[in-house]
Amino acid sequence: MKGDFLSQRNLSYCLQSGCLGLERDRVKACMWRKVIVLSGERHVTDLDTANLDYVCAKLSTAERDAAMRQADALARQIYGPRR
Rank of each mutant, 00 (worst) to 15 (best):
S7H: 10
M1V: 12
Y79V: 12
D4R: 13
G18V: 00
H43R: 10
E41Q: 06
N10L: 09
M31Q: 11
G3Q: 07
V27M: 08
C19N: 05
S7C: 06
Q70Y: 10
D53W: 04
A73S: 13
Y79H: 14
S12I: 04
S17G: 07
A29G: 09
Y54D: 01
F5E: 00
K34L: 11
D25F: 00
L6Q: 10
V37C: 03
E41G: 05
V55S: 08
L6M: 11
D72P: 06
M31P: 01
S39N: 04
R83Q: 13
K34R: 15
L20Q: 11
A50C: 00
E23C: 09
L59F: 03
A29E: 06
C19F: 05
R42G: 14
M68T: 14
S39R: 02
M1F: 13
L74K: 11
L11M: 13
L15I: 01
M68H: 04
A57M: 07
G40E: 07
L52R: 03
V35G: 03
L38N: 10
A29M: 08
Q8Y: 10
V55Y: 12
T61W: 04
D48A: 02
K2D: 13
D53T: 02
S60E: 02
Y13P: 02
G80T: 11
K58F: 01
K28N: 07
L22P: 04
D46E: 13
T61F: 09
C56H: 04
L59T: 01
Y79T: 11
G21E: 07
L22Q: 10
A67P: 03
Q70S: 14
A50S: 07
R33G: 02
G40Q: 04
A50H: 04
N10A: 15
S17P: 02
G80F: 12
A67R: 03
S39G: 06
L20R: 10
L11Q: 10
T61N: 05
V44M: 06
K2L: 13
A73F: 11
L11Y: 15
M68W: 05
D46Y: 08
K58E: 06
V55A: 06
A75W: 09
C56D: 03
A62R: 02
L38W: 05
I36S: 03
P81G: 09
G18N: 12
Y13W: 08
R82G: 05
I36R: 00
F5V: 01
G18A: 15
D25L: 07
H43K: 08
C30L: 04
Q8M: 15
G21P: 05
K34N: 13
T45Q: 04
R26A: 07
C30H: 03
P81V: 12
L15W: 11
S17K: 15
H43N: 01
L15V: 00
A57H: 11
L38E: 14
R76V: 14
A29K: 05
H43P: 01
V44P: 03
K34F: 09
G3S: 06
L74H: 10
A57Q: 08
S7M: 12
V37S: 00
C19E: 12
V27L: 13
R83E: 12
Y13V: 12
E41C: 10
A50N: 03
W32T: 00
V55D: 07
R42Q: 08
D65C: 01
T61G: 07
M31W: 00
E63D: 15
L22R: 12
Y13S: 12
I36G: 00
N51F: 11
A71E: 01
L59D: 00
